[in-house]
């Protein structure tokens, strides 16, 4: 078993706010790992439809051994689940690093700026800024879509809060949030020509790290990375490539038709279709992807999204050998 040093459990009321090490924006383990130049691993937690905190810890269990931070999704796919802030808070108390995800779909600028102060107070060091899927794909398509910010204006706002110590209105913060700012990228989705430009804009707006959506098309991703390297962007932002195990050809087809922004090439679907054990094949494919990502210049880590297959995350990372340099 890989030994990964875990931080102390955090009790916000009995401890002073976490102080970032010199040269860091936050006290988050993810930032420390990335700045050290180690290959980082983040993993997405499937949030429970429950009010029981034990369900959160149970969902996190298969991820904690390998993940430097656990992403708590914010009603992803516009489906209602336990809130990202509550999950991050529970993970902090358990001594786990987390990534607070903000989707601009559900909250306006007043709510979001307040939430960010809140999560920082709860000991959460990483924030991921997302525009968010439209409400129509979720379980409550009649909801009001907010979209007061977009991911990029949100990034700039949070950077201003952190660096200048003010709200967007100019009102002063007595203690600014020590946060490591993240954004998403979707390199394999149209318009391919402009994807690198949009990432560059996110970096200009304030992104410190990027977590990409699922990458199953390594050729397209390599080209994307080449463009980033040409612009020197891989040195300005930490890029974590998104990977995940597919359950079957049917699941893959369902995902690419029903979940916005997912590209799975036919050759991947075919490979699963032809496999005797599609679940195992999906896992094997994911391990291969993690290894391939490790080889690409400018990729600082992987972000594993194993929806309903969280139990595999440990094995995938161990089998890939990407954490070998941690010992």
């Amino acid at each position: 078993m890989i030994k990964v040093q875990q931080p102390e459990p955090y009790d916000p009321l009995s401890q002073v706010p976490l102080v970032p090490p010199p040269g860091h924006y936050s006290a988050s383990k993810l930032e420390r790992v990335l700045r050290k130049g180690l290959f980082a691993v983040t993993a997405e937690l499937n949030p429970p439809d429950s009010a029981d905190p034990r369900d959160v810890l149970k969902a996190a269990e298969p991820l904690v051994e390998v993940a430097d931070a656990i992403n708590a999704t914010d009603a992803s796919g516009a489906n209602c689940h336990m809130s990202s802030m509550a999950i991050c808070s529970l993970l902090s108390r358990a001594g786990q690093g987390s990534v607070f995800q903000i989707s601009c779909r559900d909250r306006n600028r007043i709510a979001i700026q307040g939430d960010v102060l809140g999560v920082a107070a709860l000991g959460v060091g990483n924030v991921l800024c997302l525009s968010g899927d439209g409400v129509g794909v979720g379980d409550q398509p009649g909801a009001k879509a907010v979209f007061d910010f977009d991911a990029i204006s949100l990034l700039r706002t949070l950077k201003t809060m952190r660096n200048e110590g003010v709200f967007l209105s100019g009102r002063k913060l007595t203690t600014p949030p020590n946060i490591f700012l993240g954004a998403a990228a979707n390199p394999c989705i149209q318009p391919l020509e402009w994807r690198a430009e949009r990432l560059a804009k996110k970096v200009t707006a304030g992104a410190d790290f990027i977590q990409t959506n699922y990458i199953f098309d390594v050729d397209v991703f390599e080209k994307f990375m080449e463009t980033l390297r040409k612009e020197g962007l891989h040195k300005k932002v930490f890029i974590l490539a998104g990977v995940g195990p597919l359950a079957s050809a049917k699941a893959a087809r369902w995902m690419r038709t029903n979940v916005p922004g997912i590209h799975i090439p036919d050759r991947v679907v075919d490979r699963l279709e032809k496999a005797d054990n599609p679940g195992e094949e999906g896992k094997k494919l994911c391990i291969e992807l993690v290894r391939q990502m490790r080889q690409i210049e400018g990729v600082a880590g992987v972000h594993i999204m194993a929806y309903r297959r969280e139990h595999m995350v440990n094995e995938i990372i161990e089998a890939s050998g990407v954490l070998a340099d941690r010992q």
């Binding site: 990029i152 204006s153 998403a184 149209q190 959506n213 916005p260 922004g261």
Partner: peptide, 29 residues
């Protein structure tokens, strides 16, 4: 439909169509 002022979002469909309104070209493409 998302009022994005710094687009395009990550949901653009094949051929450059909108995630929310598939019959419309993505405004940001």
């Amino acid at each position: 439909p998302k009022n994005i002022r710094n687009g395009p979002c990550g949901g653009v469909r094949d051929g450059g169509f909108c995630e929310v309104r598939p019959e419309m070209r993505c405004v940001w493409v």
